[in-house]
Design a binder for these strands. Structure first.
Lengths: 148, 148
DNA sequence: TGTATTTTGCAACCCGGTTGCAACAAAATT
DNA sequence: AATTTTGTTGCAACCGGGTTGCAAAATACA
């Protein structure tokens, strides 16, 4: 839980976001999550920031391609920091994995989304690829249990 | 808007679902949608059935693999009838396309989801592949307009 | 036909997300 | 530096899709 004192002003400005104190704080806090996080989780980690501010900040970050939004089927949007410093092209997107047991959603950073051939006429701007099942931990737990 | 009088009792029973009058009605109504539909759309098409019943019926259908649930990022779950008469394997799933302009979600029935190589330890049970962008109609409209 | 079980409708609720507005802070202007 | 303008934040209220408890109705079963 060490506090990151590095200054990310430049990161925000590069994305066309005004680096207010709260935005920098939110960005620093988001960095602590290595996989995805929800608005609520970020809110908890922040304590003193209002939920509407967190919401608006994440929306802004998403619009400026600083975070990705992920629908993992739980009904609550997840976010993850984009490690690229430019808007991700279709070929740079990575897959996500949602564990149906512990409900964590993982970034498979090294697993790129394969682009399918789709019918003519459609214009694709974004792709989501979501695997669902059991994460390694939950799988181990399950097997060690009643071996069902 | 013709009414389908065919009897789908057998379809439901084959999936382990008791064929009550309402469930048959809901199934027949769902058949009228060629792409995906939301709970609300189905409710409208049904008129006289309560929303909780529609909800519980769709949940049951989904649990019994009679419909697929699709998260298209709008926050409202979409459904589509599964045309297979057995639970779809990982290799039988199809992609979906969500239009960011008209907000319709299409089934790309003939575009199967490519299965990626994922890190060891994960157990995959389900995959969602969602393309987002403009559907052919909206794309045409946009181009014919101010040609921006 | 009477009893047990399941399904349905109604109403109320939950909760993540979203918005209007006033207070506040930062930036631009004089 | 003081003032005006613009953008940001917190608060509270709201919205809407989804979900649940419960009693009534329908269905299965003895």
């Amino acid at each position: 839980m060490e506090t990151d004192r590095h200054d990310y002003t430049e990161v925000l400005t590069r994305h066309g976001i005004r680096p207010t104190a709260i935005r920098l704080l939110i960005y620093r806090t988001a960095l602590r999550f290595h996989d995805t996080f929800s608005m609520a989780e970020l809110e908890d980690a922040l304590e003193s920031v209002d939920k509407s501010t967190v919401f608006r900040t994440l929306s802004l970050f998403a619009a400026r391609h600083l975070v990705h939004e992920i629908e993992d089927g739980t009904g609550s949007t997840k976010y993850c920091l984009c490690r690229n410093d430019h808007p991700c092209g279709i070929n740079e997107l990575h897959c996500h994995f949602h564990c149906e047991s512990c409900h964590k959603t993982f970034c498979l950073d090294h697993t790129h989304i394969p682009v399918v051939r789709y019918p003519a006429g459609f214009e694709v701007r974004q792709i989501d690829y979501l695997l669902k099942g059991l994460c390694p931990e939950c799988r181990a737990k399950q097997h060690s249990g009643s071996e069902r």
